[in-house]
């Protein structure tokens, strides 16, 4: 299958959307593919919404700004509402239903809801909903090899061993949910 990933990850500042983007981008780096990661930046980062575009491709990447994602990770309702209409036909949306109470459908788009934040709380790994959603997206759309994804998590979240363990649990939660 075509593994080209054009992903938007969006949520409130502090929910880890930029971090989740770095994990995906690093997976692309490990596989030696073309990679770009582009954050929204500016005053809206401080307490407002934060989103990033991530592209993994086998071809050189044009604009790093993803306008028509084939994958959207939505961490809150405003982000879901804002980016759902931009998702390309055949694309997939993974949303945290704990934060996005009103899931909607869009023509030609698969919308998957998972109570990521709630699952994390129950598992004692609060705050890792972003990683759960990566796992869920990967299960539905394996945009990279599993080893690369796990390796990326180790690189990006691996500074503190205890944190890495929690991140691994979160990824697995998402993959199996």
């Amino acid at each position: 299958m075509d593994r080209e990933l054009q992903c938007v990850i969006a949520g409130f500042g502090g929910q880890g959307s930029l971090f989740a983007g770095k994990v995906i981008a690093t997976a692309g780096l490990i596989e030696d593919r073309e990679v770009s990661w582009m954050p929204s930046y500016g005053p809206e980062m401080r307490g407002g919404t934060a989103n990033c575009s991530v592209t993994l491709s086998d071809e050189p990447i044009g604009s790093p700004l993803v306008l028509h994602p084939n994958a959207l990770i939505a961490l809150n309702q405003p982000s879901f509402d804002k980016f759902l209409p931009t998702v390309a036909e055949g694309g997939i949306v993974v949303a945290d239903t704990a934060m996005v109470p009103e899931l909607r459908e869009a023509p030609g788009v698969t919308v998957v809801g998972i109570p990521a934040a709630k699952l994390c709380e129950e598992a004692g790994i609060k705050g890792l909903g972003n990683i759960v959603l990566i796992g869920k997206l990967w299960a539905a759309f394996p945009f990279c090899g599993q080893e690369a994804l796990e390796g990326a998590l180790a690189q990006v979240a691996g500074k503190k061993p205890a944190m890495l363990e929690k991140n691994k649990i979160a990824l697995e939660l998402g993959m199996k949910a």
Binding site: W37, M38, P39
Partner: peptide, 10 residues
């Protein structure tokens, strides 16, 4: 420009 400055690539 801001795009090139802010983006990450290998």
């Amino acid at each position: 420009d801001g795009m090139l400055g802010q983006m990450m690539e290998p």
